[in-house]
Design a protein around this nucleic acid. Structure first.
Lengths: 205, 205
DNA sequence: GTCTATATAAGGATAGAC
DNA sequence: GTCTATCCTTATATAGAC
């Protein structure tokens, strides 16, 4: 892997774990096994490097999410697949995390990918839910856009609760609770069966 | 207000806005209008001061939440009151925020109040929901503990989404979506009416 | 209790040799 | 492209006078 690649990957790791303020150029260099000059040769500084890292993380998140959405099955099944996907719960969301960094939010370039990622996700989830409603899988009274936001919030909030507890339990409960509510809102006759639930620690995203 | 009080209050503000790593003793002192010696006279250092600040914020959060829970009305109404309460959405949750600070999570003393606050909140919400189920307001199939986690997650996640978007919209949508799902899960005949929704920016918690 | 030195490390970067 | 030297600022205290 090239030095530039290693720098980006190291920055992704550190941003995820320590956030923007908590990540120093020196820490990145050491993690990447690169010298100062090397870093400042490839990138103009910390914000530039962070931008590259954030963009890549955002792109990866979209790819992974899209995989659950294009799965065959009912809307509830696809939403379940998304929420129940194996995740590194205790590390939290690498994109949602950036939301707590005032310097990230203050910089339009850094904030852009964060905002756009959630926007895209909301759009996709809304589509899936709207489709399910049209097919009669979900009650007509369900608002796809609002429900999509609720699903995303359960995910993001589940991470927060899990980190506070130092355990995935609150995350698992929240997902289970949300899917329970969603299944109850399914039009009569729709299966809305729960899928198996593998949650492991320590695994990329 | 005493110097020590001003230091604690300033720390609360800064922790909320910038987090633990992002908050320096110097910044606290300036915000409090206190000198270095003053701060180190009253507190042994940054962790000590942060502990006092976090404890107070946690206590305040509990008091505010308890107010919504002791309100008269059905379970869904009390949950609605809690979620729809006026909040400073774009500032996020002053306790949930700490969850993104590795140094806070790594220090049992600092992490304790965070963990306990969510634990307490989960217990209270579970009670409210269980009560509603017993009274026949909610379907028997609803799991109070899981649903309580889902409600908390919607709140915490709603903050995250709102900050990413720079707008309260995703938060409002998530809450609306969640209450919609919850209302649908109410036993037939229960009112589960939506309450008015005032969300303002810039207001203490 | 508060103020003013003083101190060591880290943050974030530039300059210029190789 | 990478390395070393150097620079200024901030972070986080400690020491001791007032």
């Amino acid at each position: 892997m090239s030095t530039s690649e290693r720098l980006i990957e190291s920055t992704r790791e550190l941003l995820w774990e320590r956030g923007y303020v908590g990540t120093s150029p020196k820490a990145i260099q050491q993690h990447a096994g690169a010298g100062q000059g090397s870093m400042y040769h490839h990138f103009s500084g910390k914000p530039d490097l962070a931008l590259a890292a954030i963009r890549r993380t955002a792109a990866e998140l979209r790819e992974q999410a899209e995989r659950q959405f294009t799965t065959p099955g009912t809307a509830v099944e696809r939403i379940s697949a998304y929420l129940l996907r194996e995740r590194d719960v205790l590390r939290g969301c690498p994109i949602g995390r950036l939301t707590q960094d005032p310097e990230v939010l203050a910089d339009p370039a850094l904030r852009g990918p964060v905002d756009e990622t959630f926007d895209w996700l909301h759009g996709r989830l809304t589509e899936v839910l709207a489709e399910g409603r049209e097919r009669g899988e979900l009650a007509a009274g369900l608002d796809p856009a609002d429900t999509a936001s609720a699903v995303m919030a359960v995910l993001q909030g589940g991470y927060v609760l899990a980190r506070a507890a130092g355990s995935t339990e609150p995350y698992d409960r929240a997902v289970k609770g949300a899917l329970g509510l969603l299944a109850a809102h399914a039009a009569t006759g729709a299966p809305a069966a729960a899928l198996p639930r593998p949650t492991r620690e320590r695994e990329t995203s």
